[in-house]
Design a binder for these strands. Sequence first.
DNA 1: ATATCGATTATCT
DNA 2: GATAATCGATATG
Length: 217
Amino acid sequence: MRETASWLDGVKPVLRSLFLPDPRQVAPLLLGKVLIRRGKDSLLAGRIVELEAYLGAEDPAAHAAAGRTARNQVLFGPPGHAYVYFIYGTHYCLNVSCMAEGEAGCLLFRALEPLHGVEEMAAARRVTKTERGNNLLRRIAGGPGRLAQALGITRERDNGKDLTDDAGDLWIGDDGFEKPKVQTTARIGITRAADLPLRYLLAGSPFASRQTENTVK
DNA sequence: ATATCGATTATCT
DNA sequence: GATAATCGATATG
């Protein structure tokens, strides 16, 4: 208990105003911040090393492209809130809403560097310790579906949560990490507007979802 | 190392 | 009825 409490010393929740601009402006500011999940007796945390921007009506790849629906309504709400969707019948993905109410930009969390609660996250992911070096760590949260599973994120539990509220159980903190060098590439895994350079990486991070396709555009 | 494929369901056409 | 912002397994060089 004392262990986990002390880990959060000096970690302050980010301000909602961080999420007010266009997600393309927010992404470089959000890289290097820490995503935190609090359980009853656990603290899970990882540094944000990979994000993708999704825009509004002008972005055919965005869930908001066709306007407001039951699924995507959080995107049209105030900034700094969790939009969680279920995909391929198997995976959850976490986004944070950006821009003012009524505008639907967001950022998809694509990879974390595990920082705290590694054993618990590994167990949730069912990865074993037989692998060496960063391979195990990368398999814990190196991908949008993986990081959601590592932190136990589901739509039912987390959709709509305020990620700037450190009294909640899912929030984003600033631990004073240096301003990161940012690398930009095309987005991954989409068919529409696949060429836009809207994927943002903490440059050189070994914890990104993929090590190839990381060329600077 | 890269390529291809199946899983499995909420959501939208 | 088709699709999807993924992942892990399997096959192949």
